[in-house]
């Protein structure tokens, strides 16, 4: 995409049929139910996060219904705290939390994943924990009469027994490589 096209894209306030891919979301796991959404707004109103952040669940569901793929690039979908309030209250049983989770799956495949989350996956691969142990805690554990290390994957890794953590690292949560973020840089150069 050339720069002129890019800028035109940015200025455009309207969308055409070409911007939508209605078939894309037809294949997602919870297929038909999403499309029975009546846009009543119960989900947004229930949303704890949405009161303070830009997350507007109803809007995301609407975009899914339309087939608007920009929703996958939308950072808002990562603001859901998965509190399931919308899931509980939706009058059409659409399960919006589930939809958002699934959108995140697609977004991850496209590489739209934050560096922080990448780090968390790294921890899991290296230690088997999303929150690895630190030295202070080791001390405290001893003080409370517990083993220094909990009997989890990490403990057995250090003892050099089995290859399970390696397998874990190898086969689980294979994330797409980090995107080279060229475009913003270019803009800066232009400016």
């Amino acid at each position: 995409m050339s720069d002129s096209e890019q800028s035109e894209e940015q200025n455009r306030e309207f969308k055409t049929d070409e911007d939508f891919d209605p078939e894309f979301f037809r294949n997602i796991e919870r297929k038909s139910k999403i499309f029975s959404c009546i846009q009543c707004g119960t989900c947004t109103a229930s949303c704890e996060s949405g009161k303070w952040t830009a997350l507007k669940t109803r809007n995301i569901i609407r975009k899914v219904c339309l087939g608007d793929l920009t929703v996958l690039k939308d950072p808002d979908i990562w603001l859901c705290t998965t509190c399931f309030a919308c899931w509980e209250r939706c009058p059409r049983n659409i399960q919006p939390t589930g939809v958002i989770m699934e959108l995140r799956n697609y977004a991850t495949k496209l590489g739209n994943i934050s560096p922080n989350h990448r780090a968390v996956v790294g921890y899991l691969g290296n230690t088997g924990h999303a929150v690895p142990i630190n030295d202070i805690t080791k001390e405290r554990r001893k003080e409370l009469g517990l083993d220094e290390l909990p009997p989890t994957l990490f403990k057995y890794k250090t003892e050099g027994e089995g290859k399970e953590l390696e397998n874990f690292k190898e086969f689980m949560f294979d994330l797409p490589p980090v995107k080279e973020e060229k475009k913003p840089k270019k803009k800066e150069e232009k400016k």
Binding site: T82, N105, G128, M172
Partner: peptide, 21 residues
């Protein structure tokens, strides 16, 4: 004790990355 258990893994984060994994 559950030996060799790993992270559960967390429902919000890891489910978002890849539901199957």
């Amino acid at each position: 004790p559950m030996e060799r258990a790993s992270c559960c893994p967390a429902p919000g984060v890891f489910r978002s990355f890849n539901k199957v994994d």
